[in-house]
Computed example of a mutant assay.
Amino acid sequence: MTLPANRLSHPAVRALVTALNHHDEQAFYDALTPDATMSDDGSDRDLREWCDREIFATRGHLEVRSESDGGLALVADYRNDTWGEMRTRWRFTVEDGKVSRFETGQA
């Protein structure tokens, strides 16, 4: 069973995942702090380059399986046109109502 993005507990995470799934780059970046950072499988990446390659250019989509830590940690099936589908984990840091960092990797 999946948890729809619009039912995620944390409003900042909900906004980010909803924008990701709608391929709405403007709303996605609006949900992030200007200096947001991210990592993939434990390695820091250039956020905009990674998001363009892994989300927007390849029609990324996140199906949330579970959430914990007040909605700041997700386990989800992530798919895009490059890698297909895989089980992933996501951890979010939120400051002033926006995501300031996210960490993702295979679960």
Rank of each mutant, 00 (worst) to 15 (best):
T2S: 14
L3S: 11
P4T: 04
A5Y: 00
N6P: 06
L8K: 03
L8Q: 09
L8S: 03
S9I: 07
H10E: 03
A12K: 14
A15W: 12
L16S: 10
L16I: 06
T18A: 12
A19Q: 01
L20I: 05
N21F: 10
H22T: 02
E25M: 13
A27E: 07
F28V: 05
F28A: 09
F28Y: 06
D30F: 02
D30M: 04
T33A: 08
T33W: 07
P34D: 02
P34K: 13
D35L: 11
D35C: 06
T37C: 09
T37N: 04
S39Y: 00
S39W: 02
D40G: 10
D41Q: 07
G42Y: 05
G42I: 00
G42M: 08
G42A: 00
S43H: 06
D44R: 15
D46G: 10
D46V: 07
D46I: 06
R48F: 07
E49H: 11
W50G: 04
C51A: 09
F56E: 01
A57V: 03
A57I: 00
A57N: 15
T58Q: 07
T58Y: 02
R59Y: 08
R59S: 07
R59V: 03
G60H: 02
G60K: 09
L62T: 05
E63G: 10
V64P: 06
V64G: 01
R65I: 14
R65T: 09
R65V: 06
S66G: 01
S66T: 11
S66K: 10
E67Q: 12
E67G: 00
D69M: 10
G70S: 10
G70R: 02
G71L: 08
A73R: 13
A73Y: 12
L74V: 01
V75H: 15
A76N: 12
A76V: 05
A76I: 03
D77T: 08
R79A: 13
N80D: 09
W83D: 04
E85G: 14
M86C: 05
M86F: 15
R89K: 12
W90T: 05
W90C: 06
F92R: 01
T93G: 08
V94Q: 00
E95Q: 06
D96L: 07
K98V: 03
V99D: 00
R101N: 03
E103S: 12
Q106L: 13
A107C: 06
